[in-house]
Design a protein around this nucleic acid. Structure first.
Length: 508
RNA sequence: CGGGGUGUAGCUCAGCCUGGUAGAGCGCUAGCUUUGGGAGCUAGAAGCCGGAGGUUCGAAUCCUCUCGCCCCGACCA
């Protein structure tokens, strides 16, 4: 069986993932450990994610700002849990000048900063410091701000897109007069993320609240949207935090109430990152490479002219260019691949990159006024590549609907996988342990999916115990799905009466 | 920061044990043939063998030190 990639998902999922990232021209690792170069095709996907999400963030009343990359060390120190959460992965700037000493270029000892600066791992503190000055009166609230930025977290185990030392994201930060409003904001943005993942990335997610031990450092409550990858692991695709008054207390974000008193603001923060691109790859990719949902495909229809270095090439190119213009005229992102390589190679390059529709045009098509095309979501029947023919006008007229169908099909496929592999019939921890193959170490990477089960929502030391037991099976609690209602069975960890359902899964 | 591995052409790697001065595949360049579908043949460009020191007539190969990277653990959007 000839596939476009040299490794299949079944053989080795992590290797398959790397192979898609590489062969689809998404990104590559760089000279800087843990930092990646995002290539045009990968960045194009991110740009589309950015464009759409930016609009949705604005539509919900937020405005964009930009805050500094550097944060004074003392700012980080202000919120105790925040420090603890991020201290171990912080890049620190200590000097402002280089000097050649004994022929070695190094930080000039004379140019040491009085106070070190950290490269932002997230911006709660610097934004809180700003909010403190911006918020005076209840009339200044709510303050609804977002920024698109890069952040740095010195990760020990980087993986392209999924976990890199530097990554791109948006971080929303808001301040509110009271807790109810801040909580509503937290939940609103979580819902924006859920809809965005489903409608735009065609990636079904489960929105829910994180258990206490998985909370953002400094948050009162953390919510996430979790997506199931094709190896059954969970990917946290986005988070939204209700920060209570923790940061307001640490940074003195207060306002005068209508009654003349002084009150602390309730703040929120929420973000999604370039990790989404990794999620798209692991949700939709197949053994021929990436499959991009049309909504985030930088090129939705790629036209490959079959050129042979003969006089009729010119007519083929003219035909392709005319087709491209017609597709552009109906609002689609179309391109003609004029690169001087064999057309069969071009086709497979676009298959690997996941262009939703690939059109091939040869002299015979031109003569007959038809196009031959493949849809990437249904590339093969068995091993055979499926291609279809359509008259030029029919193809152009139906292209938008075709793309919509591809988008829907990718979502439905992923949704069916999520539904099929989310089990809720395991009643005890022993069942769960057996299901995830506790004994068989070599079984650790085989597909398992998620388990939904009731628990008694322990806290503190009791929760730590639960965490330990799960950890032995490489499992984590992903979240407690929203919108659930009892009655609940017995807690799978303790047998005590359950108070809510949680999702248990291996995770990225 | 613990345990293991590895560094040779753009990429993947062989050669190292048993020192004699550089190889393969893919990719790249050119030419010819082929082409309704991931082609073949021929020719070619490309590496002071991670770095420093040592042993030796001679080091990719042996020794010492050093740096980088990868995998497994602790941490993680």
């Amino acid at each position: 069986m000839t596939r476009a990639l040299s490794v299949t998902r079944e053989e080795n999922f992590p290797e398959w993932y790397l192979s898609v990232v590489r062969d689809a021209d998404m990104a590559e690792s760089s000279a800087v450990r843990g930092c990646m170069v995002i290539k045009p095709w990968g960045f194009g996907v991110w740009e589309l994610i950015q464009r759409e999400l930016d609009q949705q963030i604005k539509d919900t009343g937020h405005e964009n700002c930009y805050f500094p990359l550097f944060i004074p060390l003392r700012f980080i120190a202000k919120e105790a849990q925040h420090v603890e959460g991020f201290a171990k992965e912080m890049a620190v700037v200590t000097h402002h000048r280089l000097k050649s000493i004994d022929g070695v270029l190094q930080p000039d000892p004379e140019a040491k900063l009085e106070e070190p600066l950290v490269v932002r791992p997230t911006s709660e503190t610097i934004i809180g410091d700003t909010f403190q000055r911006w918020v005076q009166s209840y009339r200044d609230l709510p303050l609804l701000i977002n920024q698109w930025a890069n952040v740095v977290r010195w990760e020990m185990r980087p993986r392209l897109f999924l976990r890199t030392a530097e990554f791109l994201w948006q971080e929303g930060h808001t301040a509110h007069a009271d807790g109810d409003e801040a909580m509503a904001e937290t939940r609103l943005m979580l819902d924006v993320y859920r809809r965005f993942c489903e409608d735009f990335l065609a990636m079904p997610v489960v929105a829910g609240e994180k258990p206490e031990n998985e909370r953002f450092p400094g948050a009162v409550s953390t919510y996430s949207v979790e997506a199931m990858m094709q190896d059954g692991k969970a990917l946290q695709a986005g988070t939204s935090h209700y920060l209570g008054t923790h940061f307001a207390e640490a940074q003195n974000i207060r306002y005068q109430t209508a009654e003349g008193g002084v009150a602390l603001c309730h703040t929120t923060s929420w973000g999604v990152s370039t990790r989404l691109v990794g999620g798209v790859i692991m949700t939709h990719g197949d053994d021929d490479g990436l499959r991009l949902p049309p909504a985030i495909a930088p090129k939705q229809v790629v036209i490959v002219p079959m050129l042979r270095g003969k006089p009729e090439d010119e007519a083929v190119l003219d035909f392709c260019e005319a087709l491209r213009r017609q597709l552009a005229a109906v609002g689609l992102r179309a391109a003609v691949d004029k690169k001087q390589i064999k057309s069969a190679d071009k086709r497979w390059n676009w298959v690997r990159r996941g262009a939703p529709v690939i059109v091939e045009v040869g002299p015979r098509d031109v003569a007959a006024g038809v196009v031959t095309f493949m849809r990437r979501d249904r590339l093969r029947d068995g091993d055979k590549v499926i291609s279809a023919n359509a008259g030029l006008d029919d193809f152009v007229g139906g292209a938008a609907a075709l793309l919509a169908d591809i988008q829907a099909n990718l979502f439905n496929e992923a949704k069916a996988r999520l539904d099929t592999n989310l089990r809720s019939d395991l009643k005890t921890f022993a069942d769960i342990a057996a299901y995830f193959g506790a004994a068989a170490a070599d079984d650790a990477d085989s597909f398992k999916g998620w388990v939904r089960a009731p628990w008694c929502k322990p806290t503190g030391a009791a929760l730590e115990q639960v965490e330990e037991r799960l950890k032995a099976l490489k499992l984590t609690i992903r979240n407690a799905p929203l919108g659930q209602s009892g009655p609940y069975g017995a807690c799978v960890f303790t047998g005590a009466p359950g108070v809510e359902d949680i999702l248990i899964a291996r995770a990225y």
